[in-house]
Design a protein around this nucleic acid. Sequence first.
DNA 1: TGCCAGGCCCTCTTTAGGGCCTT
Length: 218
Amino acid sequence: MSGHGPVQPGLGGGSMEVVAVIDFETTGLSPGQGDRATEVAAVILEDGRIVDRYQSLMNGGVRIPSFIESLTGISNAMIRRAPPAAEVMQEVADFVGDRPLVAHNASFDCKFWDAELARIERSRQQEFVCSLLLSRRIFPLAPSHKLGALVEYANLPVAGRYHRALADAEMAASLLLRLEDELRERHEVNDVSVQLLRRIQRVPKAQLTRCIARERSR
DNA sequence: TGCCAGGCCCTCTTTAGGGCCTT
């Protein structure tokens, strides 16, 4: 299945430049070990709202291990009927365009994004923002920084079944909006830009307050 | 035969080890 859905009300209170929040389901953890994407989703965040969405299963011709079938609910039979991975990656890359990308544990999604794009002889132009790294800094007291645990901790809506691409992308989008709200309210940062988020996710935890203070004095 | 990711982050650290997080 692929397609664009209706506009939904957002959760955030402010605005940032437009970003695309993405999520992959895959056959395993490493494209370098032969793992392939089985599903991808992207949602466009604009003015604190999800304004567009893309989701598709994708057939990379690799068998899904049974424990991952159980984890995601995506079966080998579903993938056999899915469009080719190359076709889906062309669509999703066109869908997100050159917008900055956001993912929960972005190092994982970035690996698969780059590997699947390389197979269709395309390359990523934009940077990733990582909601996991941001959460570790902005919600240091959360008992866990798994996406599901953060959704519960921040009292965010559960968008659907965990470990399905669109639900996870929507929940990561909600989480990003909540993190932006925290920066505005708790640290009195008026302009939460992608550039600021990338600085925060890289700064050592102990220097977060100093980093934000510098940002506010700009 | 046996093994198989990798970046981040903390601490009993930095000449290292191990947990977290993604599927």
